[in-house]
């Protein structure tokens, strides 16, 4: 393996942890906000039932890339995406792809907990309801219950499902948002710094949760905490100034990074 920067990408394409099938992949992704280019030619594979962390300093494009994966960038008028991003061998920027269906399949949890100003039950039931996923009230009840269970929130809220979701604590709210996302039964779950607004205890709970969810979902998580990336993910990708510098098995990235910039970031010299 070469230590030169231009070799990094080639090296990154041969990951050690490529056991499953590729769920999503980005090929030559460029993103522009008006005149400004935010992402440069990013190639990245995301494997099924794995957790992949996107790390890098602020403004490096990791969140931009994440938001490309379920086309949340569409809501911004000036944003333009080139290259292609595949979900199960289908280009999600293809004209025939329906963005609503895409987002149902690729769910998202946001940086700041954003429960709807509705009851806890209604928050979780929202996705299934709009997608018409259940036929009976009982089915919906069961789906809500199991989602809350999986999100590790059931025990705390089972007695007050009819109370507003905004009344929960920050950590609980974020788990509610996760429950809300998994109730829609997505295939991929995107998490945009899900713990940045939470205290350490709440963070620990959510990290544990992410590890459990891996069994059923493919998870992409953006984080600015390297410890978190190390704890929860199997693969890690390092972004810097809009470029994907290096990706690989988490262990390798943190213990033996190929690229100098990655090393600098890991050791705290840039950031």
């Amino acid at each position: 393996m070469s230590v030169e920067a231009n070799m990094a990408a080639t090296a990154a394409k041969a990951p050690a942890v490529n056991t499953g099938k590729v769920k999503m992949s980005g090929n030559g992704v460029n993103v522009f906000y008006g005149e400004k280019q935010a992402l440069f030619d990013v190639d990245l594979n995301i494997y099924e039932n794995q957790v992949i962390s996107l790390i890098g300093p602020s403004g490096c494009g990791k969140s931009t890339f994440l938001r490309c994966l379920n086309r949340m960038n569409d809501t911004i008028d000036v944003c333009k995406v080139t290259g292609n991003i595949m979900l199960d061998e289908q280009d999600i920027y293809d004209k025939n792809i329906d963005v609503v269906e895409l987002r149902a399949r690729v769910g998202m949890v946001f940086q700041k907990p954003n429960p709807f100003p509705k009851s806890i039950y209604e928050n979780v039931a929202y996705g299934p309801r709009i997608h018409g996923m259940t036929r009976t009230k009982d089915e919906l009840d069961e789906l809500v219950t199991s989602s809350l269970r999986r999100a590790g929130l059931w025990e705390e809220v089972k007695d007050r499902l009819d109370q507003p979701g905004t009344g929960l604590s920050g950590g609980q709210q974020q788990r509610l948002c996760i429950a809300r996302a998994i109730a829609t039964q997505p295939e991929v779950l995107l998490m945009d710094e899900p713990c940045s607004a939470l205290d350490p205890i709440a963070t620990a709970i959510i990290e544990e949760l992410i590890d459990e969810l891996r069994a059923n979902f493919t998870i992409v998580i953006v984080t600015h905490s390297m410890q978190q990336a190390a704890r929860v993910s199997q693969k890690t990708a390092f972004f810097h100034l809009g470029k994907l510098i290096e990706e690989g098995p988490t262990d390798q990235i943190f213990t033996n990074p190929i690229n100098k910039k990655t090393q600098d970031y890991i050791t705290g010299r840039i950031g």
Binding site: A104, M133, T134, E139, S147, E187, N216
Partner: peptide, 17 residues
């Protein structure tokens, strides 16, 4: 339907059926 542990095949069918 509501079995979350149902695996990938189940997931695909829910939103693309």
């Amino acid at each position: 339907m509501t079995d979350l542990a149902g695996g990938n095949v189940e997931h695909v069918s829910i939103h693309t059926s």
